[in-house]
Design a protein around this nucleic acid. Structure first.
Length: 672
DNA sequence: GTTGCGTTTATTTTT
DNA sequence: TAAACGCAAC
């Protein structure tokens, strides 16, 4: 496929700021990758001067593979195609001392963050009921993502929880530093501070990167923007690609105004509009446009499609969520059998994760393979977090959170009373719990009131940690060391005692092997370049934990289930948008905020524009909530769809027609 | 220290 | 509805 006129203009633009408004399905990634190739091949710019930033590891990887297909490897030497966070990490790794870190520092997961907060709450005797750690954490995140502005706002209208957060914030930062660790937001914030305060480092990066590109620019938050500007310095070759209509991460601090005000911020910026949608039928594009045009303050764009109009968008209403699921699965099953659609080209998209359940059940009843993307991922499983905790302790004995997690898992008789004594002692002595354990083994009377039996349990625990620490550093095959560690520490016995179902035991043990596989994959990948080590593996794991399943590409037979948020950037032949009711989308909790509806409308728009051929919208008249049946009304967004592109099937006016067509079809196929 | 039972509470989206 | 939590008995 050739590039169109606008795409070519964007690709060929070399110097000076460039703003690309890229509507849904308009070939945005193609433009970026082609522009990279153009800069290198036609303009002779060295790849080492180019940096392309994305928000997810997945899209970074996608961009890398696409560029690699177009250009030979030597020409790509030194190019930086990564996420904001990975680039931040790279910078931190290069200059740890400048910001008060020692080299192998630790990246805290959200789980770790939460337990740090909980510990703080406990030590300050603050009731965790009225100040949930999650809420506090999201405030911390906002502080780090927006900088002083937030604190200034606070002093004007302080809410109670904000004050508590602010008090705890300093403590929290202190704990992170104690543990020689950083959190996710620090990966942007600390490099930004470094570049601001250190002229030498700043000049280094400003000379290194001359051509900067940012994908999904509408998702950028203030701190990322500051970071970008520091990387650029006076060099104006910044190219940003985005679509204000697809800005759906406001709750995470992303600021749509950054793209809307780009021209003001960079006077003389070249602006390109990509409006030709190559993905969806014209009915789908027009239906989506008729919804999004209701948003105030957006940049007016007329997206169009030259693809045949195809079927109208359907809206189907059912009695309850069970009936809704039956309809959806009936229909998609018919498409799979009759239309020979592979499951991977069909998606069910919902607003909130818990909505997946009714669909999963219905799919499972009929043994249709499906893939639930995101939600509860691999790293949320207990055994996986346990083994990772062990790896972390071995790498970093100061990692309190991980240590306490597994000190008595598998159970070895070190209970709550002992643990609180140990923590108490570590606070008294101002040293880590691990040190207390060490000293306790040398001198059992070091901590009073601990039984002999407990001490010997701790001794055995330490022995095994020491032994494997040595092995990991000595060995050239860490994965096999990890394997014997899993055997020796007694995971299997513990899991067997917890589960009665043979299959579940196997599955959980398999998850552990999966971590071993990851380590072995990691070792093989790195072997030629650097000697692999545990620290880098942990950082890799932590980054991976925050990403959706990287194996997604291989799941081409499975029906895809995910939230509308996660669907951004993807496309499917057939899309079901489900649970379209007031209160779900727009979400009732969001409605209380001022501009909440607009973001919900954009989310709905993102969902609609994922569909290439068929778009089916469904809703239920009542559904169970907390085990109680609640009535609901159709989402206001349904009405906003221009009726020339929409067919509505409400329960009253269709009783036999549409559902029976599919059912009959199914019966025929089954008997045949 | 562990187990088991009854009570409570949660569902917005995630790099 | 189902998981998570807290308390009391073993």
């Amino acid at each position: 496929m050739q590039l169109n006129q606008e795409q070519l203009t964007a690709v060929r633009h070399v110097n000076g700021p460039l703003l690309i408004f890229a509507g849904a399905g308009s070939g945005k990634t193609r433009v970026i990758t082609n522009r990279i190739v153009h800069l290198i091949q036609k303009e002779g710019i060295s790849a080492g001067k180019i940096v392309a930033l994305t928000f997810t590891n997945k899209s970074a990887k996608e961009m890398q593979t696409r560029v690699k297909k177009m250009i030979t490897k030597p020409l790509l030497r030194g190019i930086e195609i990564s996420t904001f966070h990975s680039l931040g990490l790279k910078i931190l790794k290069k200059h740890p001392e400048e910001i008060g870190l020692k080299f192998p520092f630790v990246l805290q997961t959200p789980y770790d963050q939460e337990s740090i907060i909980n510990d703080l709450l406990k030590s300050k005797k603050i009731d965790p009921q009225s100040y949930p750690s999650k809420a506090i954490l999201s405030h911390f995140s906002r502080i780090k993502n927006t900088g002083e502005e937030y604190i200034a706002k606070l002093s004007v209208s302080p809410i109670e929880i904000d004050l508590i957060s602010l008090q705890l914030f300093e403590n929290y930062c202190h704990v992170l530093k104690e543990l020689n660790s950083v959190d996710f937001d620090d990966l942007i914030l600390l490099p930004t501070n470094l570049l601001t305060n250190n002229k030498q480092v700043r000049q280094y990066y400003q000379t290194k990167f001359k051509y900067i590109m940012v994908d999904e620019f509408q998702d950028t938050n203030q701190s990322q923007y500051t970071f970008l500007k520091l990387l650029m310095g006076n060099n104006p070759n910044l190219c940003v690609v985005g679509d204000d209509d697809q800005s759906i991460y406001g709750f995470r601090g992303s600021n749509m105004n950054l793209i809307l005000n780009f021209e003001k911020d960079f006077p003389g910026a070249k602006v390109v509009h990509l409006l030709n949608n190559y993905r969806s039928t014209s009915f789908i594009v027009n239906a989506a446009s008729s919804v999004i045009k209701n948003n105030p303050g957006r940049r007016e764009k007329r997206l169009y499609s030259n693809i045949n109009h195809g079927d109208k968008v359907k809206y189907i209403e059912r009695e309850n969520e069970k009936e809704e699921a039956i309809y959806v699965v009936d229909t998609l099953q018919a498409e799979m059998i009759k239309g020979k659609k592979p499951g991977g080209k069909i998606a069910i998209l919902f607003r909130t994760n818990y909505q997946s359940r009714s669909f999963e059940e219905e799919l499972r009843i009929r043994s249709i393979p499906y893939k639930l993307v995101g939600g509860y991922n691999f790293f949320d499983r207990k055994e996986v977090r346990d083994i990772i905790s062990y790896i972390k302790i071995i790498a970093n004995p100061k990692d309190e959170v991980s240590l306490l997690r597994v000190l008595n898992y598998p159970k070895r008789g070190i209970g709550g009373t002992t643990i609180s004594k140990l923590i108490q002692k570590s606070i008294e002595c101002e040293c880590s719990v691990m040190e207390i354990l060490e000293r306790l083994c040398e001198k059992p009377e070091f901590v009073d009131g601990i039984k002999k039996k407990t001490v010997s349990a701790i001794y055995e625990f330490l022995e095994i940690i020491h032994k494997y620490k040595k092995e990991f550093f000595k060995s050239h095959q860490m994965s096999s060391v990890l394997n014997s560690f899993i055997k020796e520490i007694g995971f299997e016995k513990e899991i067997v005692s917890e589960e009665s179902d043979e299959k579940v035991i196997k599955a959980r043990m398999n998850n552990l092997s999966e971590v071993v596989n990851m380590l072995s994959y990691f070792e093989n990948e790195l072997e030629q370049e650097n000697k692999p080590n545990l620290f880098d593996f942990i950082i890799r794991l932590t980054l991976l934990m925050e990403d959706i399943d990287p194996k997604l590409e291989q799941e081409d037979k499975k029906v895809q289930l995910m939230t509308m948020h996660l669907s951004k950037g993807l496309e499917f032949d057939i899309v079901f948008l489900v649970g379209l009711e007031e209160g779900i989308i727009p979400n009732s909790r969001v409605l209380e905020e001022g501009s909440g509806v607009d973001e919900e409308r954009r989310l709905f728009y993102v969902g609609m524009t994922r569909a290439k051929e068929k778009l089916i919208l469904t809703g239920a008249k009542e559904r169970k909530k907390y085990g109680e049946t609640v009535l609901s009304n159709p989402s206001r967004f349904i009405e906003e769809i221009s009726c020339q592109y929409l067919d509505t099937y409400k329960i009253e006016n269709e009783s036999s027609e549409s559902s029976n067509i599919f059912l009959n079809e199914l019966e025929k196929l089954k008997s045949a």
